[in-house]
Design a protein around this nucleic acid. Sequence first.
DNA 1: TAGATTGTTAATCGATTAACAATC
DNA 2: TAGATTGTTAATCGATTAACAATC
Lengths: 212, 212
Amino acid sequence: MMSNSRVFDRDAVPDVVVQRLPIYLRTLAFIADERDVISSRELGALAGVSAAQLRKDLSLFGEFGRQGLGYQVKDLIAELERILQVDRVWPVILVGAGPLGRAIVNYRNSFETWQFEIVAAFDNDLAKVGQTLGHLSVQPMEDLVSIVQDGGIEMGILAIPPGAAQPVADTMVDCGVRAILNYASTRLVVPESVRVAYIDPIVSLNGMTYYL
Amino acid sequence: MMSNSRVFDRDAVPDVVVQRLPIYLRTLAFIADERDVISSRELGALAGVSAAQLRKDLSLFGEFGRQGLGYQVKDLIAELERILQVDRVWPVILVGAGPLGRAIVNYRNSFETWQFEIVAAFDNDLAKVGQTLGHLSVQPMEDLVSIVQDGGIEMGILAIPPGAAQPVADTMVDCGVRAILNYASTRLVVPESVRVAYIDPIVSLNGMTYYL
DNA sequence: TAGATTGTTAATCGATTAACAATC
DNA sequence: TAGATTGTTAATCGATTAACAATC
């Protein structure tokens, strides 16, 4: 039987499930060279969830496996890419051309493999404007609005000091950005329609020292 | 009345609560210069949780507020630091001296402000060994075991390519590391007693494209 | 066929919220 | 005192797990 994807209501899917799908996708990609087929038990173990949870999560979107056999790795990857909408390329802007911004742009191959393309980098430090950041030339903040609007860009990455994050986020939201990956240590206040993901190594480390 | 901290069973606290405490701490630190006192409603709004949830979370550890008034910001910071065990300095090793490792070490001031001190950096690329990485000199992987053991180091950061992450993690766990912050895109298989936190920008971005 | 594994249901488990007495 | 806000309880809500019929 073919994989049978179901019409589903995007808003009806719990966020906790949506946040697990990228982990499944990452795990599948990592083993795609070695395995054609994988069971929910095996994939769950690699991804850190129970077999039941993996099957339940997937069942919200359709029927992608075969009884007695498991899941075709390549097919499941394609289904997850479609569900997560990474079957197209997303242009992304980067704000902040410090060492972190440099590391992010350097991660370029990885981003592009995963359908994200950093199309412009900005910094408010005029000394950095014009400098090379990987394949990009750092642009002044004033150019941000027109580039985002003209390019219809919906995603942005913030790699700037905490004090500057909120006003820059406001500007981005005003000109159409709807998803922000925030490396700054501040929580952002944004409209409900805008998604924010936080990357903060101190928060991650603090969450582990509790258990030591 | 003074803040009244309760004896609590570390293992009885849900992990989801533990992972929110660092966010409260970050938020409090951000406003500590401006505010002496804050209510659960205000702090919750800044941290992205409901007032009820904030109070419930804190109530697992003691009574830190005053009816009618709210929480003393400085006192609550001190309590959270104690609960999270960041009232001492944690030595941390870093594996991977590429651009990402460089950005992490450059983040040094931030780490040290938050009680984490990167004490050694390693790389398996002999061309990088001996090079300067911020205040550190890159060391060969062979030195890792003795440095971790002699220093009694319990925390490590992985900033290496995915293929190399698992064996390096195994080595670290073998010589006593009990908390790993993993920037590589692979899920690590470790004993139950070892904590792993993942930082993966692609996973974070994928979790947002779903909603666009 | 026999063995294996899915998709799904129902039961369990756990987390969040609403409400309010206590009290600053 | 009157107003405000905590800490906590009980109710609600939601997520996870166990189990199994379906079926490859």
